[in-house]
């Protein structure tokens, strides 16, 4: 995660550099800055119920958000969902990576097995989980029934939450695994050996040496995974629970969509997406600030 900065020697080089990044700039402008600008603008206006007229309302949309019980509920749902998904996917990935780092025989097979989920397209993954947990006759549903758990995420809000957490974590485990494994392998073996001779057993070494040295990776993943759970999981929520039952899985990003495109409240929806945008900007800033400056040891 180290960054190299190049100074351009001549204006000619600068022009060339611009040529190289221009396509990317155009794409970013068209698909990111333009809609983002629209959202910021839209958040200051309110439309009438039929979408015929627009009125400038200043911060009214934001004030309403702050007072809306539904919005606060959605924020809470998002918090539970994001925290659980991040902890579950990172925790499991770390355990798998540490195991893979130790494994000598069959290591290749093991690594491939953990990485495969990342190659499965998200909609497919969503469908897969839906089949497995289908309330009427899914394989997992039957296994759970055998264990005395009656599973129906269409009716039970907690179960719906558990299902989208599992579905969202599943793919992310592969991604996190790769980063953790690379991070572990970047730690010089001699450090672990020195600690072993110094008298530290496995856990002591892990907590005192390995985990602290892994912290740049951990922090990076923490940010990336949080952003993932806030945004990219829209598809999973949409496919698996549609925010239900009774808003139990209506995360912030899902609510942006629902209020905007189903509820047709563009002003409120825009204000919500601006709030999300600010959260992401803060996270990205923290990422650059801490990973680059504080957490790196080399």
């Amino acid at each position: 995660m180290q960054e190299k900065r190049y100074a351009f020697a001549a204006p000619r080089d600068f022009a060339l550099a611009v040529c190289f990044i221009l396509p990317q700039l155009v794409v970013t402008g068209l698909f990111f800055f333009y809609p983002a600008g629209q959202a910021v603008l839209g958040s200051f206006f309110m439309e009438d119920a039929f979408g015929l007229s627009k009125e400038f309302v200043g911060l009214e949309n934001y004030r309403r958000l702050a007072e809306s019980g539904e919005y606060l509920h959605s924020a809470w749902v998002s918090l539970v969902f994001s925290l659980s998904t991040v902890l579950l996917s990172m925790g499991l990935a770390l355990v798998l990576a540490v195991t893979a780092d130790q494994a000598i025989k069959g290591g290749k097979f093991y690594k491939s097995a953990v990485i495969i989920p990342y190659a499965v397209a998200p909609p497919l993954a969503g469908v897969l989980w839906m089949f497995l947990f289908n309330p009427s006759g899914g394989a997992m549903t039957r296994i759970l029934a055998g264990l005395g758990v009656s599973w129906n995420h269409m009716l039970d809000g907690d179960q719906a939450m558990i299902l989208i957490i599992i579905a969202a974590s599943w793919k992310q485990i592969s991604y996190n695994f790769l980063f953790f494994l690379a991070g572990l392998q970047a730690i010089p073996k001699s450090l672990i050996e020195a600690a072993a001779i110094d008298g530290a057993g496995f856990w002591r070494r892990f907590l005192g040496i390995v985990f602290p040295l892994l912290s740049p990776t951990t922090f990076f993943l923490l940010v990336v995974n949080t952003i993932y759970t806030l945004f990219e999981t829209f598809g999973i929520v949409h496919a698996v629970t549609s925010g239900g039952p009774a808003q139990a899985t209506s995360t912030l990003i899902y609510k942006v969509y629902n209020d905007g495109f189903v509820g047709l409240d563009f002003g409120g929806s825009s204000a919500q997406s601006v709030v999300l945008m600010i959260i992401v900007m803060a996270l990205t800033f923290a990422q650059f600030h801490f990973v680059e400056k504080k957490v790196a040891y080399q």
Binding site: S190, L191, L213
Partner: peptide, 17 residues
């Protein structure tokens, strides 16, 4: 290693960074 009562100095020093 911890039960052998040895201390070791490594080529790359292996200091905990």
């Amino acid at each position: 290693p911890k039960d052998r009562d040895v201390a070791m100095v490594f080529q790359n020093y292996a200091l905990y960074p």
